[in-house]
Write a protein that binds this DNA or RNA. Structure first.
Lengths: 168, 168
DNA sequence: CTGAATTTTCAAAACTTATTGAAAAATTCT
DNA sequence: AGAATTTTTCAATAAGTTTTGAAAATTCAG
């Protein structure tokens, strides 16, 4: 397979993959493009490569920067801004976990806390089923929360090394 | 807080949460409703509880069954079908992992294999960046794949117990 | 087998989200 | 400072997704 074709396929698939995980297709594609580009790209480069509008590139790039997956790069002597993506997939993954935890898991746990104490007879099976379910999700979420905290602070080598032993 | 109000809040939040993870809001809400219901519900019950149409309930229930998160229940003497959800959140989580792995991770790994061998000079930095990135993602994905396999087959108590030690 | 109850399907409509592109703002050069 | 270039914004529009609801299919009791 030719490089250009392989690139296109990867970008398309990464985009489709993203949509299954609640990520805007174009944002995932911009990310994919930057991950496989040896050099930083300008917004014009991306418009070109993905056949999308200037506004679209701009919005998605800014969101990727907000997720800390992409950085602005200044190239001396160039007027335009350029962008690169973090290419170490371990760092990419931990960063995504970090953000989603902050944006989604933490608020969910806060809500579950509030829902925990409903008025009413603890003997009523409807009350009981509700509090049991909420309690179960809360405990699970807290466990996940702790685990992800450690994971995200860990070094890849330590982690993979330890996992090998753990999951023999 | 009153039970009815707490239920509504949970259903709404679970729905919103789902949309951030590529899951149809209504499907997540139906799932939430069944998880906090002490008894099995009919399609009419769900239409009522969520103010949605019959077709909508039907489609989403069938998808939840397809994900093996919900089961049909026959109540003797009743003409209607009833439905219950798995309420053990550990089982829910491992089942979701199982399905997403099958539907998304496995195909992605298969694609990365194909993209691995592009024609061209390995010294060309463009070729190199591409194969390095793809290779990195592939290795990471394979590691995750193995890990999730073990996780999904594990028993919750074993898992949590071991993790506590692991993540001290 | 008949007819009532229930479930399923799916085209059309409603809703949601993403994209465009031109205008405004900001930046940088001379 | 003024002009040229680049970036950002955002209202309008397009594209994509979900929902409805009525018709068709299926199931079941008598």
């Amino acid at each position: 397979m030719k490089l250009a074709e392989a690139k296109q396929q990867f970008i398309a698939s990464w985009g489709a993959f993203g949509t299954h995980w609640g990520i805007n297709r174009t944002m995932a594609q911009v990310h994919a493009l930057l991950m496989i580009s040896a050099d930083p790209l300008s917004q014009d480069d991306m418009m070109q490569a993905l056949s999308i509008s200037r506004g679209n590139v701009n919005m998605n790039i800014r969101e990727l920067i907000d997720w800390r997956l992409v950085d602005r790069v200044i190239i001396p002597g160039e007027r335009k801004e350029y962008f690169t993506a973090e290419k170490d997939i371990w760092k990419v993954a931990t960063q995504i976990i970090r953000e989603r935890k902050k944006r989604e898991l933490d608020p969910m746990l806060k809500l579950l806390d509030q829902l925990q104490d409903v008025e009413g007879d603890k003997k009523d099976k409807n009350v009981k089923q509700f509090t049991d379910t909420i309690g179960g999700i809360k405990r699970f979420g807290q466990q996940a929360d702790k685990m992800l905290d450690v994971l995200v602070k860990a070094d890849e080598n330590w982690f993979v090394g330890s996992l090998v032993k753990f999951f023999k």
